[in-house]
Design a protein around this nucleic acid. Structure first.
Lengths: 344, 344
DNA sequence: ACTTGACATGCAACCGGTTGCATGAAAGTC
DNA sequence: GACTTTCATGCAACCGGTTGCATGTCAAGT
């Protein structure tokens, strides 16, 4: 499996690890009490300017850096937050993670990242592992039950992304709005029978999309069939193609772009050309115009969601209070090349 | 900018934050000394089985969870490692991050994730921020100078990915091997003049690829021109198209797939069809067969690199020693649809 | 029966900071 | 000049664990 070569000398050397300068050393060097050094760093206004300068000079000379862990222990604030996502490799998340990290960084917070592999057990485990060392947590597209989430929320400040639980601050990307536009778009193109290739059953977004599609389809008098794709992935999309074609539909909306892409691949294997004989719409718009033809999709606002969730969390930590907040980010349809008029 | 709506009641509630059960409370409940409770959790073999059981029962009843921070302070081990990457949103990294996280998790380690936005200053800042609370660090595709990296390595255990500095453990993805195959492939197709669309100038991978291409081109008697693309991105690839066409080349190899994709888009805007009148090869193979035509590319092994780097780091932490290790992961050319015979 | 050793447990110092309170000196008030 | 106020600083307790060493107990060895 691992076929890499391995070269280099194997001279083991003991780690030299500079065993940090402590506050006491600085205090001695500056001829003050430890508490003064502490204050010089945390509330310099309490000390005379000259003392602060003397301490800072000594600290600098010694290369003193306050020990984060010790500080966290006595203050109870570690300046870290956790971010847990189901699948880092799913292109929906990297922009979210990036924006979250950036926002945290602006407040000098560090981010723990956890990947649950879509597995609630793993998610629970990670929450527990993080709980002790973060001030708060952002759960993106959590696969946990409402009960578990509530239980965790009782332990530490929590913000949810794409999960709607009353009483817990949450940021929701309303793909419903975009999905409704998608159905309307298909209706106008003359499609009468469509399928929804669904995603993970414990995904809130999936429920939301399915509901929106059902409602919109009935509004436009279209028939709708649900074809399950176990995971949000290329392969499950591809595997769903049989069922899709069997349904007799002329168009499909997939849970996300990855699934849609799998469907696209599966269709072309069956020599069904898109969009000529079948129309396809994705969700989350993570592929941009990369595919050919460019995939018609529903916009995502995952980066905004990530940023918003973190700033919400930091605000909560500042106020030491939680608010029952519910932010909704609306989406819209992005029309590209995979949709066109129905044949018949 | 933020156009989301906002609803919900704003009943601020104070955070109830269960203020943890301490070791002393458990000790009292079990009628033992704090040290015994500590040992029950860390070295149960030192205690009589009955005592351990009694303590555990008391702990369970109270819902005691050892305080991570306190433990870290007294032992000096926090069970965290940091991972710093230049750009989370670059599809090269998510698999790397995911694999790293998974590997860390196997040893009950948590991962701090940092994003430098390709900015050395930001990278330095993050290393500093992390330094106090991690046992070791993985730097992926670092944009720092050798000096800075060496300086950091003196402070804490460090493993590099795609950066070759003697004395510091490193995992290298040898895109050279794949790139050589790419050049050979183009040579066999009859291309005599090619361009390399380069990436970030402080990127080790970029240097490596450029060097490999130069060497291989001269071996096959091909002319080679370097066209710079400031960042590794879609847009810089697109912007490079003018220079590419001006060079009179019939084929190009791009620093990475994103850049290649930008080039692809730019070419099609200029009505240059690929592969009919121009051949194009990417690097890192992050797009799979997504584009149409599928992009010929050089395989990446980023997930293996992430996993390897973390396991190397954990091993170092266990042994408390560093080894001058240099792992090399070889790559190969993946031929798809963007390359064909030269016209002339 | 007396020594010796093994073993289980407690004591107290320590990790490196923060913070409420006490102290003493300088400045302000009448 | 005596009295209060203000302000800078130090003392010592505390955050919640870990760990070297001392102590006491009990069984084995002779």
């Amino acid at each position: 499996m691992v076929s890499g070569s391995r070269t280099g000398e194997f001279q083991d050397t003991m780690i030299k690890r500079t065993k940090g300068v402590t506050i006491s050393q600085v205090a001695d060097a500056a001829g003050v009490a430890r508490s003064s050094v502490s204050r010089a760093f945390t509330r310099p206004d309490m000390l005379s300017p000259e003392t602060v300068e003397r301490i800072m000079k000594a600290a600098e000379a010694l290369g003193y850096v306050p020990n984060h862990t010790a500080r966290a222990l006595s203050t109870g604030r570690h300046g870290n937050i956790g971010l847990i996502v189901p699948d880092i490799a799913n292109p929906f998340f990297p922009p979210l993670i990036q924006a979250a990290q950036l926002e945290a960084d602006r407040s000098d917070f560090c981010i723990f990242l956890g990947n649950t592999e879509e597995n609630p057990k793993q998610e629970d485990k990670l929450v527990g592992r993080f709980a002790g060392q973060v001030e708060g947590l952002v759960l993106a597209s959590s696969r946990l039950t409402d009960e578990r989430i509530r239980a965790h929320a009782a332990q530490l400040p929590l913000v949810l992304i794409n999960r709607d639980i009353e009483g817990i601050p949450r940021v929701l990307i309303d793909s419903g709005s975009g999905v409704r536009q998608a159905v309307e778009h298909l209706a106008k193109l003359g499609h009468r029978r469509i399928v929804y290739v669904s995603g993970p059953s414990n995904s809130w977004s999936n429920k939301q999309r399915r509901t929106a599609i059902r409602a919109a389809a009935s509004k436009f008098n279209m028939e709708i069939e649900i074809v399950p794709a176990v995971l949000a992935s290329y392969n499950s999309g591809r595997n769903a193609v049989g069922a899709i074609l069997a349904s007799g539909a002329t168009a499909a909306i997939a849970f996300d772009d990855l699934t849609a892409q799998g469907v696209l691949a599966g269709l072309s294997e069956q020599h069904v050309s898109v969009p000529v004989s079948f129309s396809l719409i994705g969700c989350d718009d993570v592929l941009g115009a990369v595919t050919y033809p460019g995939l018609t999709s529903v916009s995502n606002r995952s980066n905004e969601a990530g940023k918003l969730a973190v700033s919400l969390l930091l605000e909560m930590l500042d106020n030491r209070s939680i608010r029952d907040v519910r932010y909704v980010l609306e989406t819209h349809l992005v029309i590209r090349g995979t949709t066109t008029s129905a044949l018949d």
